[in-house]
Design a protein around this nucleic acid. Structure first.
Lengths: 221, 221
DNA sequence: ATATATTTTTAGATTTGTCTAAAAATATTT
DNA sequence: AAATATTTTTAGACAAATCTAAAAATATAT
């Protein structure tokens, strides 16, 4: 595995994340994500294509090659392990860790990262609930979990609803929850297992145990 | 405190170390230290002079300004804290830590470093026995420390013994420890605070907490 | 003190990553 | 389908950090 510049790594990582939504990434999307100009994106895409990290035909958008994906997973592994370290060991709050990890992730020393992983006890998710790739780049596919299992304050996306009755759909519609809705659980009440859920920046609202057990989410990567 | 590029930091650090020997540093010395060309050094010296980090008149060599010194101590603080972390927490051997710390030291986030310092228990020396500047850039001049404070695998010389009773002297004599003995602590046991000590290439032997607390050493060099 | 050697600086080129402005390709509208 | 708008690429410039080769300054030796 070759070494790439911080700038190259940032492009690769951004493409990896943008790819998730749709299959291919456009110049403007990437420029916007990286707060750079479209011309700069094109320049870098040419370079990364030569290095065989992505597939790219002018005007057709781009997506990571198998190799590019491997590189991206390496970066994400470093990023998330450092985030875990910062939160767990240095007592940073979860919203502070990302920025610092943005810098630490570019220190590419395999032994450092593998020993850090070991020191941390091989954590499988970072403080945001995102899965951490292992030393071989294998990542636990963000599998769907029931809303009751979702940790507090972790952004998740509704992926399915088990009961398809019109009664539950009526309720979901009223609460403005559909497949793809991004939400966080803000509070869980042990008494009746109801929970408070928030969508975006709107005020939180209550969901009953029965409803929660029928909503499945995936971690939002 | 402004932010400096990795390259600028490497020059500043190198000047700081070379200054130790004599007062002023020459172009060739620095080029040699950094494995770069004299022309590159001159270019950078002009830039650092404009930034008021060093005193420099063409052909006269250079030395860090007060501000440059402060910057250097910040870099060295980061470097040595990471070295300590790598050795103590990630179980790197003392000869492996330097290279990795060379990269980590350039992540300049004050909160990260201060929290790392706290997490490590405010260590005062790195795994090579070099003192670690504190958050204000103050550095301890190599003074005698108790054996319990001596980091693992750091060569040190016995400089004094606090208790002068015949009982302790009998024990010291039996263990063949006298003023001037060169030793290293190979292991520390948290249970009873006993430790394994090695003199030269002889097999290591155990020293009790009580004995260790009465032996003072200085770093060897 | 003059000639020679060494060190240091300058001048100009190169690489990486960025930018602006204009041109080319693609997408959308009428 | 032609006109218009948007997106993407190209062309050329710039800053940072480096280099080589030549010039200038300083140091050393005869």
């Amino acid at each position: 595995m070759l070494n790439y510049s911080t700038s190259e790594e940032n492009y690769i990582k951004a493409i990896f994340h943008l790819q998730k939504q749709d299959g291919t990434v456009t110049t403007n999307e990437l420029a916007n994500e990286l707060k750079t100009k479209p011309a700069s994106v094109t320049d870098m895409m040419k370079k990364l294509k030569i290095k065989k990290l992505l597939h790219y035909q002018p005007y057709q958008g781009f997506r990571l090659s198998t190799e590019g994906n491997k590189v991206a997973l390496g970066i994400i592994r470093r990023h998330r392990l450092w985030e875990y370290f910062l939160a767990e060991k240095l007592k940073f709050t979860w919203d502070e860790v990302h920025e610092v990890a943005e810098d630490l992730e570019h220190v590419t020393n395999k032994k450092l990262i593998d020993k850090l992983d070991e020191f941390l006890g091989f954590p499988r998710v970072d403080p945001h609930g995102d899965p951490i790739p292992d030393a071989n780049g294998r990542i636990e596919i963000s599998k769907k979990i029931g809303l009751p299992e979702l940790p507090l304050n972790i952004p998740a996306v509704v992926s399915s609803v088990s009961d398809q009755s019109s009664e539950i759909l009526e309720l979901l519609q009223h609460k403005k929850i559909t497949i793809g809705t991004k939400l966080e659980v803000k509070k869980k009440f042990d008494f009746d297992h109801s929970m408070e859920v928030r969508i975006g920046r709107q005020p939180a609202f209550t969901i009953s145990r029965e409803l929660a057990e029928n909503i499945f989410v995936k971690y939002d990567t």
